[in-house]
Design a protein around this nucleic acid. Structure first.
Length: 423
RNA sequence: GGAGAGAUGGCAGAGUGGUCGAAUGCGGUGGUCUUGAAAACCAUUGUACAGCAAUGUACCGGGGGUUCGAAUCCCUCUCUCUCCGCCA
């Protein structure tokens, strides 16, 4: 959520920047400023009435104490109008504040200046491409066939138990998953991230804090009996650790990592996008989250990209880094890098990480602040990224590392899997 | 699931209708003392909105009500704890 003072101060600039993501903010901003003016005006009037009421109440107290009953009754009479006025004004204030909030939460984050122009994924900017795309032998298979051939993943079994998009990992397939989780967590903690295990179901306030609610309600599984949501990413519970918190500036950078399953309804997806491991309703992901001082957050973003880059290199996967264009960025992000691995049998790039700086957008919803040098409370910047999402990594390992004998496990993972080959 | 108790500032914990944004203790910050530290002593120490400021207003789990006046009384919701039951 943007800060009202930011909108007031940088209105034209913000309109221009938001246009980059195809959002026309002009009319909304006008409404917002007008509503905010009205809010201030109403608040001032109300404060004035309340001040008068408080004054009279004090006087009445004093009269009673001195036994001056008539005077007290006289004063009481004066409060009748004030009471009526304060009631009307506070109702109006509530209404105006609600309206204002409603307008504010539907404005996406302002893109950073470095965000490329564009509307669709084709407009994303490739900033780096690394690793060799393997030349597969003639019998090479896509990962869903490899998974069946070596009995690593049973999609039909998952469908029986739950439905499409809920695979069952078996044997070396399950072991590979566990190896990846441990590898990622080890590397993240070595890089200074604190490992946490957060809840997998969150309440409404948490969903609101990171921006999933109210707009993306349909993306999450909703447990209506208890009004809880299954997390679509560990970003939600981990970032919400800091909801309503004022951190000390010397605590920066605050770095957390968590492994969680992620649950996504993915309504409307179809075709090759959902084949095999490409898009699932439940998948595993290790997430990294950082809180930073505004002045340092972009340096932190670069560091996070670098960290994930190292993971991909160590997994011996060809990958590329995209800087997302305005039209392809998520609602809450100011700048996002996507990391994609190449899946050689499918001949497609698969997104395995999305690393974003939300600047103060989430922090404003979360009321997450820090005390600066002048002891003012200032909104933090929040960042997060996948390090990494498992299924597409698995898909890419299976496809890229297949040969006539089977599937070779990347060297770095062998200590975790306990085997070098799947065959 | 049944019965009961409770929710107050960073923490602990007073406060049952007026002078309470809230005693006291701990913690934090600044200072005095000290070669330095500890101890002791003194001072200070919540958040938000409006305002250049003085200051005003709001906040004692959330929402509503009674009253001239609510942390305090009433209603309601949420959460926590204790005991019993069940159970990984």
């Amino acid at each position: 959520m943007l800060q009202i003072n930011y909108i007031r101060e940088y209105r034209e600039e913000a309109i221009t920047k938001l246009a980059k993501r195809g959002f026309d903010a002009k009319a909304t901003f006008e409404d917002i400023v007008a509503k905010d003016d009205l809010r201030k005006e109403t608040q001032n009037k109300l404060d004035d009435i309340l001040a008068q009421s408080n004054q009279i109440a004090k006087e009445i107290g004093a009269y009673f104490k001195n036994g001056e009953k008539e005077k007290a009754e006289e004063a009481k009479a004066k409060t009748v109008t004030l009471k009526q006025q304060s009631k009307t004004l506070s109702e109006k204030l509530n209404q105006v504040s609600d309206d204002l909030q409603e307008l504010l939460i539907h404005i996406p984050n302002v893109p950073n200046d470095n965000v490329p122009n564009g509307k669709t994924p084709e407009d994303n900017e490739v900033v780096k491409e690394e690793g060799d795309i393997p030349k597969l032998h003639s019998e090479a298979l896509p990962h869903w066939e490899l998974a069946a051939k070596y009995d690593l993943i049973d999609f039909e079994l998952g469908t029986k138990i739950s439905g499409a998009g809920f695979p069952v990992y078996k044997g070396k397939g399950a072991r590979l998953q566990r190896a990846l989780i441990n590898f990622f967590l080890d590397r993240n903690t070595e890089a200074g991230y604190l490992e946490v295990q957060p809840p997998h179901l969150v309440n409404e306030a948490s969903g609101f804090g990171t921006g999933q609610l109210p707009d993306k309600e349909g993306q999450m599984y909703h447990v209506t009996g208890d009004n809880l949501y299954l997390i679509p990413t560990a970003e939600v519970p981990v970032t919400n650790i800091f909801r309503d918190v004022i951190v000390k500036s010397e605590e920066f950078p605050i770095k957390y990592t968590a492994y969680t399953p992620c649950f996504r309804r993915e309504a409307g997806s179809y075709g090759k996008d959902v084949r095999g491991l490409n898009r699932l309703h439940q998948f595993d992901k290790v997430e990294i989250v950082q809180l930073q001082k505004p002045s340092d957050s972009y340096q932190t973003l670069d560091e996070m990209v670098e960290h994930v880059t190292e993971l991909l290199k160590d997994l011996e996967l060809p990958f590329r880094i995209l800087k997302l264009c305005g039209g392809d960025m998520s609602f809450t992000s100011a700048l996002t890098y996507d990391m994609e691995v190449y899946s050689a049998a499918q001949k497609r790039w698969l997104e395995v990480s999305s690393i974003s700086n939300f600047e103060s957008y989430q922090a404003n919803r979360l009321k997450l602040r820090y005390k600066d040098e002048n002891k003012n409370n200032v909104l933090c910047h929040t960042l997060n990224g996948s390090a990494l999402a498992l299924p597409r990594i698995v898909a890419s390992i299976l496809e890229n590392h297949q040969d006539e004998k089977g599937i070779r496990i990347p060297k770095i993972l062998v200590p975790y899997t306990g085997f070098e080959y799947i065959n």
